[in-house]
Design a protein around this nucleic acid. Structure first.
Lengths: 210, 210
DNA sequence: GTCTATAAACTGATAGAC
DNA sequence: GTCTATCAGTTTATAGAC
C-alpha cells in the first residue's frame, strides 16, 4: 500500500505536491514578490506547471486563491505559537509564555516565508471583499496576544508606562517584519530567536546586572 | 506681490499644489493602498483632477513616478532624523542621539504616511529596474544607523549579545511598521514617540529600578 | 483533470488638436 | 499644459474538446 494512498494527503508519489497545493504555493511566492494585482493567473499556472485554464478546475476565482494564501499564512503562525505555549508547564511565568510565543511566531514566519510574507505585504492592498473574510482570524490572533500581555501586566512582569495595545502592535509588527530581512546564512534560527527575544524583553541598551 | 510668486514654489494661489505635485501625492496614496502594478495611471489622473494623457507632460513613464514617490518617502525620513541629531549638543550621549533619531524617523514616517508607507509596502514588489536607482539612498541610510549603533556599542551604551546589524534591522523595521498601525486619535505623537523609545531602549518587561 | 480558443474589458503609452 | 482618440498588448474568466 502506497504511503500516500490516503485521499486526504496533499502529495502523491510521482509529481510532488498535487496540483492544487502547487498552485497555492506558487501563488503565495508570486503574490509575495510582485503583489496580488500584478500577479497574473498565467504566471501562477506556468510556475505550477499547468495551463491557465486549468486553475479554474481547482479554484473559483483569483480571489479565492488569495483567500487561501492569506489564511495559510496566519494559520501557520498561530499553530506554531499555540503549540509552544501549550507545551509549557502550567506554572510557567508569563515571561516564559511570551518567550515561547515569540519563538513560535518567528518560527512560523521564517519557515513558511512565502505565505507569511505574502500575508503581511499584500493585506493592505487587497479588495475589501477579501479582507472581510480574513479579518476574523486576524482579530482572534491579536486578542490571543492581548490576553498574554494583559496577564503579564497583571502579574507585574510587564512594563506599566506603555499601553498593552501599543506593546502588542509594536512587538508583533517587529516580529512580522523579520521575514523581510532575516538571513539564515548568518546564524542558526535558534540563535536568531534568542537575540530577538532578548531585545524585545530588555531593549537594545546595556543594562548592568551588577 | 503674491506670497507664492516664487517660481520654485510647489503651490499656486488658485489650485493648491501644482499639477505635478498633485500627481505625485495621489500616486503615493494609490500605490500605498492598491500596490504599484494595481494602480492605473487613469486612477492617478482622476484623483489628481487631470486626464490620463496629461500625466505624460509631467512624467516620462509610470516607473518615473514610482521612482520619485520612493525617493520622497525615504528623503522625508532621512531629513527629519539628521535635523534632530545635528541639533543636539556636541557632547550628547549616543543614547540621546539614538533617541533623537528614533523620534525623527517616527515623525517622518507618520507625518507623510502615504509616501513612507508606499515606500515600505511596495519596495519588495517593484521591477528590478526601479530598485536599482533607489538602493543607493537606502544603503546610505542603513549605514548612517549602523554608525550610530556601532559608536554606541564602542562606548558601552549598547547591549553586546546581539549584532549591530540585527539591532539596526530590528529597530528600523519595527519603526517602519508603526505607520501601518499608529492611530493619532489615541494620544499625541510626542507621547507615542516616548512609549516607542522606552520599549526600544529598555524592552517590554518590568525592570525594577530600586 | 487538463487542454485550446476566445470573449470582453482594461492597460501604458503615443499622436496631434487646441 | 491639457485635452481626445487610439494603438498594441494583456487581463480574468468561460466554453467545450479530449
Amino acid at each position: 500500500m502506497s504511503a500516500n494512498s490516503n485521499p486526504k494527503s496533499t502529495t502523491n508519489d510521482t509529481d510532488g505536491p498535487i496540483t492544487r497545493e502547487r498552485i497555492l504555493l506558487e501563488a503565495a511566492r508570486l503574490f509575495r514578490h510582485h503583489g496580488y494585482a500584478a500577479t497574473t493567473l498565467r504566471e501562477v499556472a506556468d510556475a505550477a506547471g499547468v495551463k491557465a485554464g486549468s486553475i479554474y478546475y481547482h479554484f473559483e476565482s483569483k480571489e479565492q486563491i488569495l483567500g487561501e494564501v492569506l489564511d495559510k499564512g496566519i494559520t501557520i503562525v498561530i499553530d506554531a505559537v499555540r503549540t509552544r505555549i501549550e507545551a509549557l508547564p502550567k506554572n510557567s511565568t508569563w515571561r516564559d509564555r511570551i518567550a515561547a510565543g515569540i519563538d513560535g511566531h518567528l518560527w512560523g514566519m521564517l519557515h513558511h516565508g512565502d505565505f507569511t510574507s505574502a500575508n503581511i505585504r499584500i493585506y493592505g492592498q487587497i479588495p475589501d471583499s477579501a479582507k472581510d473574510n480574513h479579518r476574523v482570524v486576524r482579530r482572534a490572533y491579536a486578542d490571543y496576544w492581548d490576553r498574554l500581555f494583559e496577564s503579564a501586566l497583571a502579574c507585574g512582569e510587564l512594563r506599566q508606562d506603555a499601553s498593552t495595545a501599543v506593546i502588542r502592535l509594536f512587538v508583533i509588527g517587529a516580529l512580522n517584519w523579520t521575514v523581510e530581512w532575516y538571513n539564515p546564512q548568518r546564524g542558526s534560527f535558534e540563535d536568531f530567536s534568542r537575540q530577538i527575544t532578548a531585545i524585545v524583553f530588555d531593549g537594545i541598551l546595556r543594562h548592568d546586572k551588577a
